[in-house]
């Protein structure tokens, strides 16, 4: 079978599942068993999509790695980029590992809770107490379970211990490093990058916004009213700006934007059908 046909078939059947699941009434979905498998199928599709995460990494390392190895222009900055990348990866894995340790402890407490709920013999009760004594958060409570009934109704003891483990504040250099990269690099630099736009929009307002036509005048008037309607200073001058702004947003703006949204929505639907039926050729590498 032609490779292109195989690709088209897979594309079609992947989309068909969700279209069928949407179109069929709930009762029929239940009858044919789609409801029972829906979560697993969705996780399957999610996993397929998520597996693409490595593509970016491979490209990043290839491009910047080669710059460093061959000492090309900008090699130092490539080194900085890869250092940032690997340090974040290292600390994020470290943070994950630390969290896993506490969650494993919480899970073993949860397991004992389940065991306690179904304990039926005194032998097993003793076994439960023995296991509880191995866990620091439960050690002191083990002897409070005198009878089988005590054990069966002891959920709260285990839940409290589990909460204690999960809420435990652990400090380590790994956590410090992870916090530093998040709060000292990722958040502030990201915010600063975007905030540059504030300067540019001010410069553009002075240089580029010329009110030369009726369209530009209408745009300017609407912009001024919207800004004045939610600025404390202008509202101190005249409170009437606020209802005008709200009316402008609720009536003419909503109507005009709904027109845009409906148009874009219909276009999106057409595009979805074109993708589903593989009419869009670009993705499949078909030569012109």
């Amino acid at each position: 079978m032609n490779k292109e046909i195989i690709i088209r078939l897979f594309t079609f059947f992947a989309g068909l599942y969700f279209v069928v699941e949407f179109i069929l009434p709930k009762e029929i979905n239940e009858e044919i068993g789609l409801v029972n498998i829906h979560e697993s199928v969705s996780y399957g599709f999610l996993a397929i999509g998520a597996m693409a995460f490595g593509l970016g990494i491979i490209n990043l390392i290839r491009i910047h790695g080669s710059k460093i190895i061959f000492l090309q222009k900008g090699a130092f900055y490539s080194l900085v980029l890869l250092l940032g990348f690997f340090s974040m990866t290292f600390f994020a894995i470290g943070d994950w590992k630390l969290n896993m340790e506490s969650s494993k402890r919480a899970a073993s407490i949860g397991l004992l809770q389940k065991f306690a709920e179904k304990v039926e013999t005194t032998d097993k009760l003793e076994l439960l107490k023995l296991e509880m004594k191995k866990i620091p958060e439960l050690r002191d409570r083990a002897d409070s379970l005198a009878t089988l009934e005590d054990a069966n109704k002891s959920s709260i003891i285990f839940q409290e211990a589990s909460q204690k483990v999960v809420n435990e504040e652990t400090s380590s250099w790994i956590k410090d490093g992870y916090n530093f990269l998040n709060k000292g690099v990722f958040v502030p630099l990201g915010a600063a990058m975007f905030s540059l736009l504030g300067f540019y929009i001010a410069a553009a307002a002075y240089r580029a916004f010329r009110v030369k036509s009726l369209e530009a005048s209408l745009m300017m008037i609407a912009a001024v009213l919207v800004v004045c309607g939610q600025t404390s200073f202008t509202l101190m001058i005249w409170e009437g700006f606020s209802p005008i702004r709200n009316w402008l947003l609720q009536v003419p703006n909503s109507a005009a934007f709904r027109g845009i949204a409906i148009g874009a929505g219909v276009a999106g639907l057409v595009l979805a059908f074109r993708m589903w039926f593989s009419i869009e050729s670009g993705s499949f590498g078909r030569k012109k």
Binding site: L46, A47, A50, M51, F53, G54, G56, I57, L60, Y77, S78, V80, L81, L82, L83, G84, F85, F86, S87, M88, T89, A92, I93, W96, L181, V185, F186, L189, G190, M193
Partner: peptide, 22 residues
């Protein structure tokens, strides 16, 4: 700082995808 930011931001996604989904 621009390159540092890009590197750190790129390092976050793969681990979160593995940690939270895969």
């Amino acid at each position: 700082f621009e390159h540092l930011f890009i590197g750190v931001a790129a390092g976050l996604l793969p681990i979160l995808t593995i940690r939270n989904l895969l």
